[in-house]
Amino acid sequence: MQPFTISVIGILRSIPEGKVMTYGQVASAAGSPRAARQVVRVLHTLSGKYDLPWHRVVNKSGEIALQDDISRSVQQSLLEGEGVHFDTAGCVDLERYQWDET
């Protein structure tokens, strides 16, 4: 496993309940600020195997990036179950819910 992937897994596991990080934020924290798409790859391929809190990652606007309606609904439900609220446009208030691991 690549060092970046290992780092991403550790960062994802550090996101507490009720908080979110953006794909770019995770990539930056893992040492590759321009690797947001690689974070998506890690989430897609390794979330189940490593029991990662995939639902705590949103895009830079605070939106759920998943295109599939069922998957979007599942992610939103999981976040709401942790106390994360969405505005009428379906966005998370990043000022309130964004996790800063530093």
Rank of each mutant, 00 (worst) to 15 (best):
K19W: 00
Q98M: 12
D100W: 08
G31V: 00
I6M: 13
L66S: 14
Q67N: 10
I64Q: 04
I70T: 11
D69F: 09
A36N: 04
L94C: 07
H85M: 14
T88V: 15
V39H: 02
D68G: 06
V74F: 10
I11V: 05
V84F: 04
R96G: 03
R72K: 14
V42A: 01
D51T: 08
A29L: 14
S32W: 10
S32H: 09
L52P: 04
K49E: 14
K60R: 05
Q2M: 13
M21V: 13
C91H: 10
S28R: 05
V92Q: 02
G90Y: 08
W99S: 04
F86R: 09
L78W: 08
A27N: 10
V40T: 15
D100A: 01
Y97R: 05
V42F: 00
R34C: 06
F86E: 11
T22C: 09
L66N: 13
H85A: 15
Q2H: 14
S32E: 12
Q67D: 13
Q2I: 11
H85Q: 15
P33A: 00
A89D: 13
V8T: 00
S14K: 05
V84M: 02
P53F: 01
R34H: 10
S32C: 03
S73V: 07
G62M: 03
S71R: 09
V74T: 10
A89C: 10
T45L: 15
G24L: 01
V84E: 00
P3K: 09
R34G: 05
V20S: 06
L43N: 03
I11R: 00
A29R: 15
T5D: 07
R72F: 11
T88H: 07
Y50R: 08
V39C: 05
K60V: 13
A89K: 13
G83V: 13
